[in-house]
């Protein structure tokens, strides 16, 4: 069975079509890049998979079941913008997550925080932007979820932080789980992808295995993307 299946999904805002007849299958144990330009529909699609937006028509199934409470229990989501209460201390956020999610591994979260030398008594407001991004990622990757969805995890961070983020993703996802990473910074991330999905103007234009695509086109995913979506 597919981990995630989307059938004939349509979504529009004020008569403007945002997602146009999306059909998609995601299987277990894959790292998938959801790649598209700004405004292509990536974030809308991700919000729908996380049951944060209603749809006009179609179906979104997680392990064969309609998305809802069950899927939220098993999907770990890193949104583009933080939703944390910044006046909270790190320790309080960890407890909050631990109360909220059954699959949250507190020991792992503390272990990862320790490696960063992050004081658990510190308030989020006092942390640098990069540190806040890292904390957010640690919270998400400390869940033992079946699917991790990361919306633009690399935008706005320096190259060293980028390496840290990629490492943390690779070494902490539960075995057999899948990861969907949306990004427009393809060259930084393509090395870790099993599969790529190109989305443009609300439509899925390509879904392929990453190495097979490189082999066929004799170039990088970044290059193929640029050629396909030249402005």
């Amino acid at each position: 069975m597919n981990l995630l299946e989307i059938k004939h999904l349509n979504k529009s805002f004020d008569n403007k079509t945002i997602l146009d007849d999306i059909n998609l299958k995601i299987s277990k144990g894959k790292i998938i890049g959801l790649l598209g330009k700004n405004g292509a529909g990536k974030s809308t699609l991700i919000k729908i998979i996380n049951d944060l937006l209603t749809i006009d028509s179609g179906e979104v199934l997680f392990k064969g079941k309609k998305i809802g409470v069950y899927s939220k229990e098993n999907i770990a989501f890193l949104p583009e913008r933080t939703y944390l209460d910044k006046s909270m201390k790190v320790e309080a956020v960890i407890n909050f997550f631990s109360d909220f999610y059954k699959d949250f591994n507190k020991e792992k979260a503390y272990e990862l925080l320790e490696k960063l030398d992050l004081d658990k008594k510190q308030r989020i407001t006092k942390m640098s932007k990069g540190m806040q991004e890292k904390l957010q990622l640690i919270l998400v990757m400390s869940r033992e979820a079946d699917l991790y969805i990361l919306d633009e995890p690399l935008s706005g961070v320096d190259p060293a932080t980028r390496d840290y983020i990629l490492d943390t993703i690779l070494s902490n996802f539960k075995e057999g789980a899948s990861i969907i990473i949306s990004t427009h910074l393809i060259s930084d991330i393509e090395r870790i992808l099993d599969e790529v999905i190109f989305i443009d103007k609300g439509k899925i234009v390509l879904q392929s295995e990453a190495d097979a695509l490189r082999n066929k086109e004799k170039s990088s995913i970044d290059e193929i993307f640029r050629r396909m979506f030249k402005c």
Binding site: I31, L170, S171
Partner: peptide, 11 residues
């Protein structure tokens, strides 16, 4: 190995 090379375990 995957973590040494910093690549996807499937690859």
């Amino acid at each position: 190995f995957a973590s040494t090379f910093k690549v996807n375990p499937n690859t």
